[in-house]
């Protein structure tokens, strides 16, 4: 073993961190998220232990629905990354392809991914835990559709960032969606959050869907109110994020970034 060769490799990695904010952020990002999410779950269980009927039902349902949102986001972002890794972006953007067509194709891809993943997850839950996701009833479809759209919103937002900041920002493809997890109230109700965070969670469409899911599973009132908020917020954010994608494409063309994004 030669120390200089080990140091050479160490230095090679430290050079990366010296100039890369996303890489430095990633060191703190996951432990911080773990702490936040598990902290709120603990609070929820401690506070409502006796009032939560079959919280395994809540958790499994929430996990399956969260994964749909995650796959929907991945469907968009990974489709873009595949083109970036293949150095194929120039071929696409120098063709008659419009940004709207590019987005539509990636959204269609994400729907296909979500469909396959949903079948696998629902089937596995039934097989291993005798848990049937269909207990959510007629609300399941509108819930899933809204989560897919929220996934698109996060996916298009992340794709725009990667397009703008290049391969350095690639890590966002996997990490960005988890930034939304604590405020999506996947595994705990919104009221567990501190008041200031509740206000942020309230404008997150996914939080209304998970609130609605808990309402249905606890045999409570109709989740129509939650659903209405989710639809309105999703609609508004989708328009904003698509406009932002167009703006990013224009910015990248202006600054010559589109041809350098894979470097």
């Amino acid at each position: 073993m030669k120390l200089h060769r080990i140091t050479a490799l160490l230095v090679r990695h430290l050079y990366l961190y010296r100039r890369s904010l996303p890489r430095i952020m990633e060191i703190f990002y996951w432990p911080f998220l773990d702490l936040v999410i598990w902290g709120f779950i603990t609070l929820y269980l401690a506070r409502y232990q006796s009032q939560v009927p079959g919280f395994v039902t809540f958790f499994l349902g929430a996990l399956i629905l969260w994964d749909m949102l995650f796959r929907s986001q991945q469907g968009i972002t990974i489709a873009f990354l595949e083109e970036l890794w293949a150095r194929n972006l120039m071929n696409l953007f120098a063709s008659p392809l419009k940004p709207s067509e590019f987005l539509t194709a990636t959204m269609a891809m994400s729907v296909m991914k979500v469909t396959v993943v949903s079948i696998v997850m629902a089937g596995s839950a039934l097989l291993f835990y005798s848990y049937n996701i269909l207990i959510v009833g007629v609300w399941l479809m509108p819930f899933v559709l809204n989560l897919v759209i929220t996934g698109w919103i996060i996916g298009v937002f992340t794709t725009s960032l990667i397009m703008r900041f290049g391969q350095e920002a690639e890590v966002l493809a996997w990490s960005m969606v988890f930034l939304f997890q604590p405020i999506s109230c996947v595994f705990y109700p919104m009221e567990v959050l501190p008041t200031w965070l509740q206000m942020i969670a309230w404008v997150n469409p996914a939080a209304h869907i998970f609130e609605g899911m808990r309402t249905v599973l606890s045999g409570g009132a109709s989740p129509l109110g939650n659903l209405a908020w989710a639809v309105c917020l999703n609609g508004a954010f989708l328009v904003v994020v698509v406009a932002w994608f167009y703006r990013t494409v224009a910015y990248c063309k202006e600054h010559g970034l589109l041809v350098r994004v894979g470097e």
């Binding site: 083109e83 890794w85 063709s95 008659p96």
Partner: peptide, 18 residues
């Protein structure tokens, strides 16, 4: 769109899905 439909390019520096 109309123009790029009638134009194409090739470069040593591009690739295609691997």
């Amino acid at each position: 769109e109309e123009i790029l439909q009638q134009v194409n390019f090739s470069s040593t520096y591009i690739s295609m899905p691997q």
